[in-house]
Each structure stands twice: as structure tokens, then as C-alpha cells.
Design a protein around this nucleic acid. Sequence first.
RNA 1: CGGGGUGUGGCCCAGUUGGUCUAAGGCGUCUGGUUUGGGACCAGAAGAUCGAGAGUUCGAAUCUCUCCACCCCGACCA
Length: 413
Amino acid sequence: MRQSQLFTRTVKELPKDETSYNAQALIRAGFIDKVAAGVYSYLPLGKRVLDKICRLIRKEMDEIGGQEILMSALIPKENMEASGRWAAFDVLFRLNGGDNGDNKEYALGATHEEIVSPLAKKFIYSYKDLPFGVYQIQTKFRNEKRAKAGLLRGREFLMKDLYSFHTDQADLDAYYEKATAAYKKIYQRLGLGDITYLTYAAGGTFSKYSHEFQTVTPAGEDSIYICEKCSNKVAVNKEIIAEQNACPLCGNKKLTEKKAIEVGNIFKLGTKFSAPFHISYKDSAGQENTPVMGCYGMGPSRIMGAIVEIHHDDKGIIWPESIAPFKIHLLSLNENEAATRIYVELSLAGFEVLYDDRELSAGEKFADADLIGCPYRLVVSKKTLSADSVEIKRRSAAAGSLVKIKDLASKLK
RNA sequence: CGGGGUGUGGCCCAGUUGGUCUAAGGCGUCUGGUUUGGGACCAGAAGAUCGAGAGUUCGAAUCUCUCCACCCCGACCA
């Protein structure tokens, strides 16, 4: 994409009403726009990153047999009452039909057990219909009393939620392990693998315990206790450290406290929802049974914020290649003719290129490239052209090197 | 929800013991020119009901009250 056509621009000044790094950087670089506290719009650069995160997640969910659906965002009050959460869930946005005579009340979807359960009921009759998993990636709404930290805790955010249905606990347990492995793969691909811990946590209203995936960063709002003795990347959330004060796997009692951000949360729901929604199946003996459920959440928008918190320097964002808005940021220092040829060539070769063809000083282009944070910066200037070359610099590196134009594509592969 | 803070052109801000404020400056934008390997420079121009409402006063960005928004700490967090 030609940067001259990009409708957003970067800004020099820090936004005064944001202090979290992720919000400051993403707003300055033009990835997101703030609409209200905890409510953001995603602009072209931000949307590309978000889509890439989603694509990566989607692939792994498909891999473990998840079938993608899209559920309604409006949840009728009676559905929420069936689980008792219309009244109990205090961050729920509650709506009525407005002034057109519709008295029906709804909640904006904060989570979707109350939709997926009656949905699943319509297709579950026999043990032969089980197990299965469905998932969606959708905007969730939670009226947090205090939204904060940019994308890390919003009132409106994107979430992937998978729900699985099983004949019995053993089958759920097995699937839960598969889902856990899939989650780990995703964090690995996102460049968070080394600092993300499977964390034993409270189950909230769902169950006694749950598992969170916590990524260590000072920007996080949770405190976790990490076991550094065993190699399993395991931790215990502070909220249950009183009852679980040792590593659940190796028994090590010397745990290290660290700040972390929750980037995923998985629960074994048991019959918490299948019972009130009267889901049942006939087993091989003809007996009616209640299936057990699991749910698996992961927030792409929060992950985007977390990655910015973790992967940056004093000049801007450093995107992992897997989710960068563009792999290559091509800067023309007043050499648009040659640069355009290179841009077209790389684009045709399948590379994602952000091409800075604007009439600006070199300094501004460099500053923008650092701020936006694409993995590779290519510079075309008099200097490089005199050597039939382009300068390539990794965003994470201090200096670049010259590469012959004819070798560019193979070098970037 | 409790406590603290902030609100002035698109952005960052000065001004707040009431009186040439007919609101200053920087960034950005527009025009012209000079520049071109780290946010360069010169000249000119446009752009503001000072968060909203009510009040006090001869006079309010400035004082009072109410409301709203945003940020931070805490509580909360499926």
C-alpha cells in the first residue's frame, strides 16, 4: 500500500488522555482511534494486525475441530435469566426495545453460554452427536466500571470464544488438553510463548478453578506466582495462592511473583449451563444424560495491546512478523521512480509492502517507520542506488546493510 | 462504586489573585520559496461559541453551583 494513500497519519505528540504505552503508541502510529473510555475503532493498520491475530487463532481452532459460527450479539433477557446471570452479571449492558413499542429486553453479549447452549440443544439428541466444538470471533460488551490501559481492558473488545460439548468428563478432559496445546501454539506464533504461563486460577461463577494464560509484563494487572523450577511454564494466580501455594505440577513452593496480563482463559463448565438449558442426549443404553461443556476464551484485541506493551523500544512498536501490518516498510528518500519499481516488483512477488512515497524529509520517514514497526525497513536513496542496492534494516536491529536490488526478493523470503 | 486529577483551534499546551484575552506559543494544515539519510528552514494564511448549563459581576477562560467527559489509585473483573 502506498502510504500517501493511507488515510491516517502519525502524530508526534502523545495523546494526553492515555497513559498506557499500548494506547499511546497505537494512537500515535494510527492503528486505533479512541471513541470513549475503553472503546476504540480500528484503523487500516490496526485492522490488518487484528485480522492477522484472528487468522492465526482461527487456524488453530479449526485444527482442533472447532467449527466457526457467528452468534447474535443481542441476548434476550430470558436467556440470561435461565442461567441466573441477568441479575448477577454486573458488567452487563442491558437494553430495552427503545421507543418503538418493543418491550423486550436484551443484554449485549458479554459472553455467549446463554446463546450457544440453547443452540446446541437443537442438535444434540444422541451420544452420536457428541462431541463437538463451535467457536466465534465477535465483539464482546462489558460495562467495566473502570476501563483502563488502552486495549488491555475495554468496554468493547474482540473475543474468540469456543464452546465444546461432551458425553462425559473424561472426554471433556481430553479435549481440554487439546485446547490447552492449541493455545500454547498460538502464543508461540504470536511471539509470546516464552513469557506466557498456564496459570491456575479461580473459576469465577463458572467453576471452582479455571486456567488462564498469563503473559508476563509490568503492564499487566494480575499478579501470578511462577514456578521457575519445572519447565512447564506454570503459575498460580494470586487470587488462589492462599489455597494453592505450590506449583501444581512439581510441588515447588518457592514461587516468584510477577505482573501479568491475562491473554486467555479456559474453563471446564461441567453441566453449569447444559443443565439449566435442559440439554440432554441418549447414551448407548438409551438412558438420558446431560452433556458436559468446556469454554475457551481468547481476546485478539487485548493480545494486540499486550504485544505492543512487550515488543517496543523508545521509538515505537516492533511487531512480530506473524502479525505485523506489513512485512516490509519501503522508504523512498526522494527516489520515487526507482522505489516505485521495487514496490511493484515486491508486491507482485507476494510481499506485503507499505510504501512511503510521500514528499517528506528523510527524518520524518524514519521516525514513522520506527513508530509503525514493520519488521523490515527498506530504504531507497541516491546512496543505495549508486550501488544498485537497497538498504535493509530489521526493525529490531541497530543498523542495516545494503542488498543488490536483483537479490532483494530472495533475501526477503 | 470510593478517592485524586484534568478539560482552552485537529493535536500538545500558556493564561486561572476577574479588567487591552479583541485568548499567546508549538505541532499539524493551506500558499510560496529553500531543503532532502533521522520529525529541516524562511515568509504568509486559515482555524476557538475557553467541556456543558445556570449564577455572581459594570466586566468571567479566570469566581460559585450543577452536570458531563477523560485519566490515575483502589474496589470489581465469567
